[in-house]
Amino acid sequence: MTMKTSHAFLLAAAVLALLAAAPLLIPDYWTGVLLGMTGYVTLATAWAMFSGPTRYVSLATVAFFGVGAYTVAVLNETLPYPLVLLCAGGIGMVMALIVGFSTLRLAGVYFVIFTFGLAELVRQTVSWWEVNITYTMGRYVFLPFEGRHIYWQLLALAAATFLISWGIGRSRIGLALKALGDDETVAAHAGVDVTRIKLLLFVISSTIITLVGAIQAPRWTYIEPSIVFNPTVSFMTLIMALLGGAMRLWGPLVGAIPLFLLFEWLSVSFPDHFSIILGLLFILIVFVMPEGVLAKIETLRKGSPK
């Protein structure tokens, strides 16, 4: 970054204002696209906040996303909306604490395994609960929101996510994280409380992901576990963060925008072959630019003769 921080902030504020005004100027269809894109930018940034520096690949994005959406579906008729969001965030936080406490003390692979099946576990448990305890399968969300209202909420959350991510990068925690990512043993010997920092990051990141799910819930109107716990969400988040580069603040954003547009087009043009194309693309990214497109550009620049 060569730009001064104050200038960068002004620029970011201007872009944010422009994005916020967009739904008043463009057709509803494009507001929908912007909405989805903002959702994924937030998901990918929140995912990278934890998984980037720690290198703990979290495969549980949709577990938290789904919990957020489903909480809104359950509570939207009984509580005022802000309280519903608060509840959703709280539940996501508690779930992240439980997962984090039991796995983050151990080697990374236990965490991966645990998060790998977490979405399926939550989906099955919620289905079981609904069928056997509450006798309802599928719920309706009736909230007086149009696409742009949801979009504005997501945009605010996205801005907050970037602020948090930026703040962490500049704080003591950020420094500790850099040490941790380079060498965990050395970091621990230098007095970094490794487990606590990982846990803190995981909880922040998961809470944001839960909120993305909660805010987007009114878009579906009808919600059941198999809709909101769709594993493709975890996969797309991961691939976006990876394409842009999970180690950089703007990396997930750079990855999310083109991939979201590509996926929109693919899911309309090749609905049956969507996951095959997605999988192949993902393997290609891991092979060609494991550090992300931003790092790739940097090495190409450095490597090329002047």
Binding site: G108, H273, I277
Partner: peptide
């Protein structure tokens, strides 16, 4: 070994979707 673990997790996660997609088709 750590880097290989992360890479293999990512690649086989992609492979999972490819195989599953083929079976679904």
């Amino acid at each position: 070994e750590g880097a290989l673990e992360v890479d293999s997790i990512l690649v086989t996660f992609g492979l999972l979707f490819v195989i599953q997609g083929v079976l679904l088709v």
